[in-house]
């Protein structure tokens, strides 16, 4: 069982990111999946959480995730918060929307695998969202799939086309850039 926690802000498409990941896993035939939103006060800008579980067998636990194997951070400011690694298992992966390097992000938070991806820049380059409110979820999903190797890209592409309401090609292109950014940094490392 792979358990993933998503950190974002209202309006960034955090819940949809978890859903697209789950759908990509199903479409890849890589096992069972579940995407769980943590609804709080539903306001644009407020921190929000979502969770995903991926497993070879049936997923029965339907509680929140307190000790994730991986964390995904959609918001660059939240990427700097110590809270995002709370409960994260030693050696766990963090896929973070950030223009900082893995080394910079790891300062004060050792023992995790950092996958920074400049998702804001990618999103804006593809015309997704606005400068103050970029839609980073598809770029992040691309990076996440590359970092965790839980789905293949064509499956993610299909999941994105099913889930996003507009700008299908741009969202897929953003996901591909996020995907390739992680593959490149893996190859360099």
């Amino acid at each position: 069982m792979l358990e993933i926690r998503f950190h974002g802000r209202g309006g960034q498409g955090t819940v949809l990111a978890a859903k697209m990941l789950a759908d990509a896993v199903l479409r890849s035939g890589r096992g069972e999946c579940m995407a769980i939103p943590e609804f709080g006060v539903e306001r644009r800008g407020a921190p929000v959480l979502a969770y995903a579980r991926i497993s070879d067998g049936p997923i029965r636990v339907r509680s929140r995730i307190y000790f994730p194997d991986a964390v995904v951070v959609l918001d660059p400011l939240l990427s700097l918060s110590p809270l995002v690694v709370a409960g994260l298992k030693p050696g766990g992966a963090v896929v973070a929307n950030s223009d900082k390097s893995a080394e910079e992000l790891a300062v004060g938070r050792p023992g995790f695998r950092w996958y920074p991806v400049p998702a804001k820049e990618i999103a804006l380059r593809h015309g997704l969202g606005s400068k103050t409110s970029p839609m980073v979820n598809t770029a992040i999903c691309g990076a996440l799939v590359a970092a965790l190797q839980v789905a293949d890209f064509p499956a993610l592409e299909a999941a994105i086309r099913e889930s996003v309401p507009v700008k299908f090609d741009q969202n897929v292109a953003a996901a591909r850039e996020g995907y390739e950014a992680v593959l490149r940094s893996n190859a360099a490392a």
Binding site: A22, L26, E32, C33, M34, A35, I36, P37, F39
Partner: peptide
């Protein structure tokens, strides 16, 4: 509510 209603699964 939420635990099933808003949760995605196959």
């Amino acid at each position: 509510g939420f635990t099933l209603s808003h949760t995605y699964e196959p």
